[in-house]
Design a protein around this nucleic acid. Structure first.
Length: 211
DNA sequence: CAAGAGATCATCT
DNA sequence: GATGATCTCTTGA
């Protein structure tokens, strides 16, 4: 668990501010990070205003041996960031349309990351609606491509330090939610790795990408 | 409601 | 030259 949680004040004092997750949080095993991220808050600062979402769905991509992980293809310009130290954003562009947000985990030279797949909108909701051109709260960020659009996350944030002030995660003192694990989405090509239950969801959340 | 196609481009072969 | 850690819209029952 994150060390900062020991210093948490009563919940009512956390209505507007949380504790930024430290680098040591991201240095844990990738599966642990993916699970513990559920119930944490994604914060994106932007000139037009901040957007905040409660994370309800993640996926772990655990290293070069994981055939679903981009790093299994080797160290390239695209995957370089995953080979660096934990606590940085890995943002890539796919299908000609969408950006995907990942958080680099574990130690230097161990390429692994957690994909953020869905968040529950918490703040900056009008901004998200304007960017996404949809109205329903449940549709704003219930998918990895949707949330990147809602939060204005693109490849200019690739490599961003999650311990800085533009893009980061917060603990807001809530109890760990009940978790459900399933195989990851869209990785049928990954051989025996496609069946690993590395997708984690908050049970009972209405804001996940699919059930 | 389920299934399928199309959109569109960075990345790697 | 092919393909992908997606999304939305259209079709048809």
């Amino acid at each position: 668990m994150i060390r900062a949680s020991r210093h948490i004040a009563p919940a009512k004092e956390f209505s507007t501010v949380g504790i930024k997750l430290s680098r040591s949080f991201y240095e844990q095993s990738t599966v642990d990070v993916a699970k513990q991220l559920l119930g944490k808050y994604l914060v994106r600062q932007h000139p037009k205003g901040a957007t905040v979402g409660r994370i309800v769905e993640t996926e772990a991509y655990v290293g070069p041996q994981d055939l679903a992980c981009h790093a299994s293809k080797g160290r390239t310009a695209r995957t370089e960031i995953m080979f660096g130290p934990a606590g940085h954003a890995y943002v890539y562009f796919i299908y000609g349309f969408y950006n995907m947000l990942n958080l680099v985990t574990e130690r230097k030279n161990h390429p692994a990351a957690v994909l953020i797949r869905a968040v529950e909108p918490v703040a900056g909701i009008d901004l998200m609606r304007a960017r996404r051109q949809v109205d329903k709260l449940r549709d704003l960020a219930s998918g990895p491509g949707k949330l990147c659009r809602a939060f204005a996350i693109d490849r200019s944030l690739n490599g961003a330090d999650l311990c800085a002030d533009v893009l980061y995660l917060e603990e807001r003192g809530e109890l760990p939610p009940k978790i459900r694990a399933t195989p990851r989405i869209g990785v049928d090509y990954a051989g025996k790795w496609k069946d690993k239950r590395y997708r984690f969801l908050v049970r009972d959340s209405d804001f996940v990408s699919k059930t």
